[in-house]
Design a protein around this nucleic acid. Structure first.
Length: 898
RNA sequence: GGGUUCAUAGCUCAGCUGGUUCAGAGCACCUGCCUUACAAGCAGGGGGUCACAGGUUCGAAUCCUGUUGAACCCA
């Protein structure tokens, strides 16, 4: 059989991808088996998959593939997220490149473009997931704006409104005057060095006197919105003015001088002008002191009539800032100006300076609805991995704030609020327009209201207000047949799929969305199902480059996953990413890791080639074969136990490392070298069968990590017994501790022999004979003596009858090995120095042990086990000192002779 | 400013409730090998006063306090 010495993954991966897809190998339907469900954290349809997705989805695939092999009905539901803000931004940018402005389109026209975008990129993402080998049940693919899903989101809004959890309220938001939209905090960027601005020092006269306060501001155009001047209550400079009235320059408004802790005495003049409509902190102060709010800005950044200066109305805020300077100078209230550096927030997309702006938004009241979500994590019903995140989670849940769920965008689930008048309460909330009309007639008392009299809220919901329903709605939890609209609960008895698959087993996601998403899914699960959505949350780290920088397009430090898979093979990339990604820790990605993965695949491939090349004969196993087979059986049993344990703790990368070590070190480096027949010789049929059977077990253990190569090699070795993806997971066996210890000793001896050979330049081809003294003759009966001989390259070990003086010696496993050499070849002085050094070390070691044993308090307090160990150490050291002393005498005599 | 987490070999990390080796693994590094599965390989080796300073203890990387430094979240 001709097999290439190098493993080439491309064809093999393509073959299995097609096979799995065509045969729908990953499809799941409820049956008698216990379920094991994972719902994918739906990737945004903003673009293509990045390395973070690759890592995250590889982990999910590892878990789901292993579960399948363990006999669970494994179901991994794939899908994508509409990601309203991010996607809308991409679509707007794409349109801009085509020369189309969003504002010249109708909502319907814009959405048509957005859906085209979604089809294109959503498709790419799902294709990439397949390429990764993700064993998702593709028929279940869900999108957060699918018809059913959309209805579910709206239904939940209406339900929460009915339950009293949703309200409308004022809130300070980041406003992009150019795009005329609110921005999330993430979309506001700050130049690291800050920006140069001018401080204007302005006089505010005290009413009824010539006295004045000086206020420093960088935004004089907001002076017309001032409703107070604030000072720190402990500031003695201004204490006498608190409670008096100040006059706002230019417009002459009379405002109170108030005391508030927020004001920093050291900053500026220590006097703060308070403009609640245009600054978040001022807004808070305003609330505390019951101040009015005067909003002087239009949504395009121009000033409105409320500014009270007719010539400013309709002018841009920056133009007004310039004009204000003149005005202030003319009024002789400008004390001075001063250049300074400050943080200026700019829109990520338009680069225009972000204006803090008050706006009427929709909120979910979080306190009550989230109470159970903390409890289930505290109780351990839901476990976080790593567990340290529970502190962060608790802190957030205990300080939970109301959730602003409205966004001034088009792409998303449109808020089902319908306005029939201009009053603050002139609206109704309903799932459909028909219901809204009905409700509006009742609420307004106007039976003549028609559909066209209603205006639906133009805003859409925050993306998380749809994705928090994900684990429930991918199984249709809010569909008509099972959602009880009266009780606002899901009836599990009317949805067999949901009842079977929910709660899911584990959610794999990033710590940064612990609150945004994870916590909210738990809240939704408890509110609508009275059940947790998942039992475990596995938090992955961020994939960074090897310098520790976050991967980003602008840095160009993010490798193209497709390219990586083409270069190294998908298996290699999967393994490369998992190698150094302990849960919750960031992964410093280096292409070298993929190379390591590729090398591993090649190693496996060659091990396969080796056992394939053997010819067998019918005979009982010889002693070497029997010992090797028995030993590896132990190793395998121990490793399965360890791997199962690591999986149970979600220590995925360590589980991979255990498999890696088992295959490369234990199986290839020790077992195969041990059992492999000499050139031209045959192996016994039984030993060959065992070797193949072990290899198959290794492939099974590796399959979750490297699905392609394992499926391929399994198909060669298992002669038509189905796919490895459905093969049973190897069982952990009993581990014979005695055998493990015996191996440790024999491998230690082999290493020492190899080291000795290397130091004495004995070529690997030369088989040598070593001697031991009579008192060490037991080594010849060592259970793994065949391995010592074979891997040590020994012709034999013999018991020494005479005392030889011209020898070299080394200690291994408590045994002194003796190698006779020509008298001339022995450098007595060097040998003496070496033995003396060993002796000194041994004596020092003994001394420290004796010190411990001589310590009364140690003997009193230390546990028996520890004391026994110290005694053992003492005996070993004494024996060693004796042997070394004898050798020293020998060498000294030899020296005298010379 | 408030909170959380962390600081162990050149790098990424293990090290569970203090005591079987005062320290492990992978990668990297050094040396020798084209040994008839694999140079994408084989064999061997060096390398850490466990951030710093105190304390508790017979005994601390492991517990306590402080200092310094890093990361993340919230405002």
């Amino acid at each position: 059989m001709e097999i290439s010495a190098k493993y080439t993954p491309a064809d093999i991966e393509k073959k299995w991808l097609e096979y799995w897809t065509q045969h729908e190998c990953f499809a799941s339907v409820p049956d008698q088996r216990p379920p094991y469900t994972i719902v994918i954290p739906p990737p945004n349809v903003t673009g293509v998959l990045h390395m973070g997705h690759m890592l995250n989805n590889t982990i999910q695939d590892v878990l789901i593939r292993r579960a399948r092999m363990l006999g669970y009905n494994a179901c991994w539901v794939p899908g994508t997220d509409h990601a309203s803000i991010a996607t809308e931004a991409k679509v707007v940018a794409m349109l801009r490149e085509k020369g189309i402005s969003k504002h010249q389109l109708t909502r319907e026209e814009f959405l048509k473009y957005a859906f085209e975008w979604k089809e294109k990129y959503g498709g790419i993402i799902l294709h990439q997931l397949r390429r990764l080998g993700a064993s998702c049940d593709w028929k279940r693919t869900t999108f957060t704006m699918d018809e059913d899903y959309y209805r579910a989101v709206i239904r939940v809004f209406v339900d929460l409104y009915k339950k009293g959890y949703i309200y409308r309220g004022l809130r300070m938001i980041n406003w992009d005057c150019e795009a005329r939209t609110a921005l999330s905090n993430e979309e506001v960027i700050y130049n690291d060095e800050g920006e140069k601005v001018t401080f204007y020092y302005v006089k505010y006269y005290i009413k009824g006197s010539d006295d004045y306060l000086t206020v420093a501001t960088v935004r004089p155009e907001t002076i017309m919105g001032d409703v107070a001047v604030a000072v720190n209550p402990t500031d003695e400079r201004y204490a006498h003015l608190i409670g008096k009235t100040a006059i706002v320059p230019i417009i002459g408004r009379e405002v109170p001088i108030i005391a508030d802790e927020y004001v920093d005495k050291e900053f500026g003049t220590g006097c703060l002008k308070v403009t609640p409509a245009h600054d978040p902190n001022d807004y808070e102060i305003g609330l505390r002191h019951n101040l009015p709010v005067i909003d002087t800005l239009n949504d395009d950044g121009t000033l409105n009539e409320l500014c009270g200066v007719p010539e400013f109305v309709g002018l841009d805020r920056f133009k007004v800032r310039k004009l204000m300077r003149q005005k202030l100078e003319e009024a002789e209230v400008l004390v001075k100006t001063e250049d300074t550096i400050t943080r200026v927030g700019r829109s990520e997309r338009t680069n225009s300076v972000v204006e803090p702006r008050l706006s009427l938004q929709w909120f979910i009241r979080m306190k009550e609805i989230s109470a159970k979500a903390l409890e289930v994590v505290e109780k351990g019903d839901i476990q976080l991995h790593p567990a340290k995140f529970i502190n962060t989670y608790r802190h957030w849940m205990e300080n939970v704030k109301d959730w602003c769920i409205s966004r001034q965008l088009w792409w998303g689930h449109r808020i089902p609020a319908f306005y029939y008048g201009d009053g603050p309460e002139d609206y109704v909330v309903a799932e459909t327009l028909e219901e809204a009309v009905e409700l509006a007639r009742q609420k307004s008392g106007n039976a003549g209201l028609k559909a066209q009299d209603l205006r639906q809220d133009p805003d859409v919901l925050d993306t998380w207000a749809s994705s928090w329903l994900w684990p429930l709605q991918v199984f249709g939890g809010f569909n008509d047949q099972c959602f009880d609209r009266v009780r606002g609960k899901i009836d599990f008895t009317k949805n067999a799929e949901l009842a079977y698959y929910y709660p899911t087993e584990v959610l794999v996601t990033a710590p940064e969305i612990l609150f945004f998403w994870v916590a909210r899914m738990i809240i939704a699960g408890m509110e609508y199902a009275d059940k947790i959505p998942f039992k475990h949350v596995y938090l992955t780290g961020i994939v960074r480059d090897k310098l520790g920088r976050k991967m980003s397009k602008s840095l160009g430090n993010s490798p193209d996953p497709e390219q990586l898979m083409a270069t190294y093979g998908t298996d290699a990339v999967r393994v490369g990413m998992l190698f150094s990604s302990p849960a919750g820790n960031d992964l410093l990605f280096d292409e070298k890791l993929c190379e390591q993965g590729r090398n591993f695949a090649n190693k496996i491939w060659n091990a396969f080639r080796l056992i394939q090349s053997w010819t067998a004969e019918e005979r009982p196993m010889n002693a070497t074969e029997a010992a090797a087979v028995s030993w590896f059986g132990q190793q395998l049993a121990a490793a399965v136990q360890e791997i199962d344990d690591l999986f149970a703790k979600y220590r995925i990368s360590e589980a991979l490392m255990a498999v890696y070590d088992l295959i490369w070190d234990k199986y290839c480096s020790w077992y195969l070298e041990w059992i492999k027949p000499a050139y031209g010789e045959r192996i016994s049929q039984e030993a060959l069968e065992s070797s193949k059977s072990y290899f198959i077990d290794l492939m099974k253990l590796l399959h979750p990590f490297m699905p392609f190569i394992t499926e391929e090699l399994y198909s060669h070795l298992s002669s038509g017994t189905g796919l490895i993806m459905n093969a049973p997971w190897p069982k952990a066996g009993k581990v014979d501790a005695e055998a493990v210890r015996a191996f440790e000793k024999s491998s230690e001896i082999v290493t020492a022999i190899r080291n000795f050979r290397a130091q004495n330049q004995i070529t690997p081809k030369e088989r040598i004979t070593l001697f031991v003294k009579a008192e060490n003759a037991e080594v010849l009966a060592h259970p793994y003596i065949t391995m010592i001989l074979k891997l040590g390259g020994l012709a034999n070990i013999e018991v020494l009858s005479d005392v030889l003086s011209n020898v070299k010696t080394f200690l291994a496993g408590g045994i002194e090995f003796i190698y006779p050499i020509n008298e001339d070849a022995l450098d007595v002085d060097a040998e003496l120095a070496k033995v003396q050094a060993d002796l000194n070390y041994a004596k020092g070691f003994l001394e420290s042990v004796m010190k411990k044993l001589g310590n009364e308090r140690f003997m009193q307090n230390a546990p028996e086990q520890v004391k026994q160990n110290e005694l053992k150490k003492k005996q070993d050291a004494e024996a060693k000192i004796e042997a070394l002393t004898k050798r020293l005498e020998q060498l000294n005599q030899l020296k005298i002779k010379q």
